[in-house]
C-alpha cells in the first residue's frame, strides 16, 4: 500500500513536469530595466499553478501591476503592458473588468497608444459582453483621439447592452460634434459623476478623467500664459510666480491634488503628476 502513495507522488511529478515548459519572456530591447518582468509566465501556466485560486492570483497580479506602473521613474516599462493586462490577467479571470479599462487608460494617457487601448478594451468586451462600461470607455478613447465616428459606434454598442444607463444614448448622439474640446468633455464627465444612475465604476473613472482633464486644461492655459509673458518681456519666466507678479494670472494654481505645478524655464513646459492615472495622492 506504501507503493500506491509512492506511485501517486511520481504521477504528481509527471503532471507538474508539464509546467517545466514555462516560457521565459525575454525583452526585445537592450538595456531594459524590466528585470522583474523577465519571469512573468504565460497566463495559462499561471492558471495551472494556481490550483483553484485563479481569481485570487489574478487579483495579486493586478495589484502588483498597479504598484509596478505607479513607479514613474522606470523607463521602458510599458513593453509588457498588453501582455499583463491583456493576456495574463484575462487568462486567470476573464470576467475581471477593472484590468481592461485600467490598462487601456494607462496606454492611452501615459503611452498615447490609442489603438493599444482600444485593443485591450475589445478583448474585455469579447469576454464580458454584458459589461457596458467597456464599450463606453472605448467610445471616450475614440473621442479623445479625434475619431468621432468610431466613438459614436462604441456608444451605440454600449447603449445596446441591456441594463445600461440612459445617458449613453445622449452621448452617442453628441459624439459627432465632440472633437477634442476639453471643456465639453469635462462637462460630460461631471454629468456622469453626478448622475444618480451612474454606478460605482463609472464614478471612479469619471473622477480620474476629471482630474486628468482639469490638469490638462490648466497646463494648456499656463503654457499659453508663459508664451504671452515671453512675447511681452522677451524671455521666459524663471518661475511660475513671475506670471502672477506680472499680473498675467491672479495667482499660481495648484493641481487637483494640491501640489504645485512643475515648470521648466528652458522649454516653457508645465507638467504635473496629477495628469497621470496612478501614483497620485
Amino acid at each position: 500500500m506504501r507503493i500506491v502513495a509512492i506511485l501517486l507522488l511520481v504521477l504528481t511529478m509527471v503532471a507538474t513536469s508539464s509546467l517545466s515548459r514555462v516560457r521565459l519572456e525575454r525583452p526585445s530591447g537592450s538595456g531594459s530595466d524590466d528585470k522583474e518582468l523577465l519571469y512573468l509566465p504565460n497566463g495559462r501556466y499561471l492558471k495551472l499553478v494556481s490550483t483553484g485560486q485563479a481569481s485570487l492570483v489574478a487579483d495579486v497580479v493586478y495589484l502588483w501591476a498597479i504598484q509596478f506602473y505607479s513607479d514613474y521613474g522606470r523607463e521602458d516599462r510599458y513593453t509588457y503592458l498588453q501582455h499583463i493586462f491583456g493576456e495574463v490577467i484575462p487568462e486567470l479571470d476573464p470576467l475581471y473588468v477593472d484590468p481592461y479599462w485600467l490598462g487601456a487608460m494607462i496606454l492611452s494617457v501615459e503611452v498615447r497608444d490609442v489603438d493599444g487601448a482600444l485593443a485591450l478594451l475589445e478583448k474585455g468586451m469579447e469576454n464580458n459582453p454584458s459589461a457596458w462600461i467597456l464599450p463606453y470607455l472605448a467610445g471616450w478613447e475614440a473621442e479623445g483621439a479625434d475619431r468621432p465616428l468610431q466613438a459614436a459606434a462604441y456608444f451605440e454598442r454600449a447603449a445596446a447592452i441591456p441594463d445600461s444607463p440612459s445617458y449613453l444614448r445622449r452621448m452617442g448622439a453628441g459624439m459627432l460634434v465632440r472633437a477634442g474640446r476639453i471643456d465639453d468633455a469635462l462637462r460630460d464627465w461631471e454629468e456622469v459623476l453626478h448622475d444618480p444612475q451612474s454606478d460605482e465604476i463609472s464614478r471612479v473613472i469619471a473622477e480620474r478623467w476629471l482630474r486628468i482633464l482639469e490638469t490638462r486644461k490648466t497646463i494648456q492655459s499656463l503654457e499659453g500664459t508663459v508664451q504671452a509673458f515671453r512675447e511681452r518681456f522677451g524671455r521666459r519666466p524663471r518661475r511660475l510666480d513671475e506670471l502672477a507678479s506680472a499680473g498675467l494670472i491672479p495667482s499660481v494654481p495648484v493641481d487637483p491634488g494640491g501640489a504645485p505645478y512643475s515648470y521648466d524655464p528652458a522649454t516653457g513646459h508645465v507638467s504635473s503628476p496629477a495628469g497621470r492615472i496612478l501614483g497620485e495622492e
Binding site: 481569481s55 487579483d59 477593472d98
Partner: peptide
C-alpha cells in the same frame, strides 16, 4: 486593508481573498 490598494472594485479583492482563505 489590502483592497485599498486596488483601482476599481474593492469588494472583489475582499471576496476573492475571503473565499480563497476559507478554501485553502
Amino acid at each position: 486593508a489590502l483592497s485599498q490598494l486596488t483601482v476599481g472594485s474593492e469588494e472583489k479583492i475582499v471576496k476573492d481573498l475571503g473565499l480563497s482563505a476559507i478554501s485553502i
